[in-house]
Structure formats: structure tokens, C-alpha cells
């Protein structure tokens, strides 16, 4: 197999684009995809201060690498989740990347700030780790982006993540979630930062290939709580479809974004209040983050759980 551009031996084959590339032209292809996504959706410019949620996995490190090379001003934010050894290694990979590339990194430790990390929190409130984990991530990414006055928060969500989320939302007809699923969410409240997903057109295999070619040392190990997650089942289903019919994942997501989401959006009439407890936007009286931690305080030794986040 030959590179479409230079006819040297190809390293990465892209069946959904009916093409293949050598390492140099593959890296160029990935970088071009990202800049096209940023411009197409007006995600941000080089004048903006951009905060990137960095887990230490392939997606966030690849995105940090791509944007830094393109000259954007991107600071990393790593949330230490308190999931045993997995979290320790994630922090190591993130720190190592930031140090080698001399990038700014903000670290936030859930356990020392709130009193409990994800593992102990989920035991105390008897909820699946991923639900508490997701809520903490969304809350602190937004809160820290506001606190440090960033213009936009970006995440490494890829095409597989987005297609799997869409599949789950369609399977359960989650109208609210469908109306919010987008590569870009503008701020709709002074306490909500703009959010973007510049990798949403690239698959996991494509992003992992980028990291492997550039020897970006990312965390290959999975979070122990991911086993059995619905998202993995949906990704597997979609990848089986993709093999038989290349381009399926992309068509599924792009078709939704261009044809279906606009009609969902026009029905969007959520009014946002400020949480009675923390002031962050919520559709109710008290936000789900505060309700979760209130529950943790009731069910755990109250001395362990901090009253509010120390921000």
C-alpha cells in the first residue's frame, strides 16, 4: 500500500476516506483535520486562552501536541480522580508530556480538595463510579476554566466517543442529551464556559496511530471502572459495522449534526437558574454536583468530606 501523496510505503490506511498515507503525510492529514474543525465551527483563535482537559490518554495528549505545533496557546488541566494506581499513572503521563514540551499544566486533586476521590465517593453514595466521575469532571472543568479566565474549554472527544454517545442517546431517546450533543457548545450563561471538541472527526485508531508515530507516551491502560461500560459495547457494535461498511460512524454522527440536531435545537427552551448552594448554572434549585456531595456528606463520616470545593 502506497501513500496517496508521495507514493512511499504507507503506514496508515483510512478505508473510510479510501486512502492511505506515509507517516509524514499522515501527521499532516491529522493536523489538517483539526485545523479544519476549529475554523469550520469558530472554536477558537490563537488570540484565545484555551484550557484543555488532559487525562494522560491518547486523545488529550495528541490534541495538546497538534495545537501546540499549530501555535495555539493551550494550558492543560489534569483532574486527579483518585482511582488508585490508574490515577497515579495518568498524572505521571500527563506531567511527563507537559515537562518535555514545556507546557503549562494545572493539576487539581479531587481527593485533597473534596475529601473523597471517585472510588471512595462512589462507594459512599452507592452510585456507579462513572456517573459520579463524569459529574465531577464536568463541574470542575467548567469551574476551573472560569476561575482561571480561559475563553474556551476543549476536550479530546473523538469520533468513536461521539458516535457511541449518540448511539446511546438515540437508543434511549434522550432528547435533552441529543439537543446538547455537538462539537461546540457556546456559553449560554456567564458561569458556563464555551466548550469544543476539535478531534470529533478522527477515530480512536487514527488518534492512537498519530501518537504511536510520534512516540507520544500516553496511558494505554484502561480505567478499571470502564469494564462493562455501555460506551464500550456501543463502540464495539459501531466498529463491527464500520468494518463491513467503512464511513458508517462518520455518516451516523455527521448526519445527526447536519440534519437532525438543528430541529432539536429549535425546541431547546431550558432556563438556567443559579444553584442555591454554589451559584453554578442549573435547571433546578440545587445543582446535581452539590446534591451528590451533600449525599456523600450525609452517608460518610462528615469530617472526611469538605463543605465546599476550596475555589
Amino acid at each position: 500500500m502506497r501513500c496517496k501523496k508521495c507514493h512511499k510505503k504507507a503506514s496508515v490506511e483510512l478505508r473510510r476516506h479510501n486512502t492511505s498515507f506515509c507517516p509524514i503525510h499522515y501527521i499532516e492529514f491529522v493536523s489538517n483535520q483539526v485545523s479544519r474543525n476549529i475554523k469550520k465551527h469558530n472554536m477558537f483563535t490563537s488570540a484565545n486562552r484555551v484550557l484543555l482537559a488532559v487525562s494522560g490518554g491518547k486523545d488529550s495528549l495528541a490534541l495538546w501536541d497538534i495545537l501546540t505545533k499549530q501555535g495555539y496557546n493551550v494550558t492543560g488541566l489534569h483532574l486527579k480522580l483518585g482511582i488508585g494506581n490508574y490515577s497515579l499513572k495518568a498524572a505521571e503521563k500527563t506531567r511527563a508530556f507537559a515537562e518535555t514540551h514545556e507546557l503549562q499544566l494545572i493539576e487539581y486533586d479531587l481527593e485533597s480538595e473534596m475529601g473523597l476521590g471517585v472510588s471512595r465517593l462512589s462507594k459512599s453514595i452507592k452510585r456507579a463510579p462513572c456517573s459520579g466521575c463524569g459529574l465531577n469532571k464536568r463541574y470542575f472543568f467548567n469551574k476551573l476554566a472560569l476561575q482561571f479566565q480561559f475563553d474556551v474549554l476543549i476536550t479530546g472527544h473523538n469520533l468513536d466517543d461521539e458516535a457511541a454517545t449518540l448511539f446511546g442517546n438515540v437508543l434511549h431517546w434522550q432528547e435533552q442529551a441529543l439537543s446538547r450533543q455537538s462539537p461546540i457548545l457556546e456559553s449560554t450563561h456567564p458561569n458556563l464556559v464555551k466548550k469544543c471538541k476539535p478531534l470529533y472527526t478522527l477515530t480512536e485508531r487514527e488518534i492512537a496511530s498519530y501518537c504511536l508515530l510520534l512516540k507520544i507516551a500516553y496511558q494505554e491502560e484502561e480505567c478499571p471502572n470502564a469494564a462493562g461500560a455501555h460506551s464500550l459495547l456501543y463502540k464495539d457494535l459501531l466498529n463491527r459495522l464500520e468494518v463491513q461498511s467503512p464511513g458508517s460512524k462518520q455518516q451516523f454522527l455527521q448526519g445527526f449534526l447536519s440534519k437532525i440536531r438543528p430541529s432539536f435545537r429549535s425546541q431547546e427552551t431550558v432556563t438556567l437558574n443559579e444553584c442555591d448552594s454554589c451559584g453554578m448554572p442549573t435547571t433546578g434549585q440545587v445543582c446535581s454536583f452539590c446534591r451528590m456531595w451533600e449525599r456523600a456528606r450525609k452517608l460518610t463520616d462528615p469530617k472526611l468530606v469538605n463543605g465546599t470545593s476550596n475555589l
Binding site: M1, A10, S11, V12, E13, S20, P23, T203, E204, R205, A208, S209, L212, L213, K235, D236, N239, R240, E242, V243
Partner: peptide, 15 residues
């Protein structure tokens, strides 16, 4: 699944 796996030989990605 070839859609979710990458094969490497001597640090070179294979198609």
C-alpha cells in the same frame, strides 16, 4: 477488529 487495533513491527505501523 481491524478498526480498533494497530499492528506495529520495529516501531513501524503496518497496513
Amino acid at each position: 477488529n481491524p478498526e480498533s487495533h494497530i499492528v506495529i513491527r520495529d516501531e513501524e505501523l503496518l497496513t
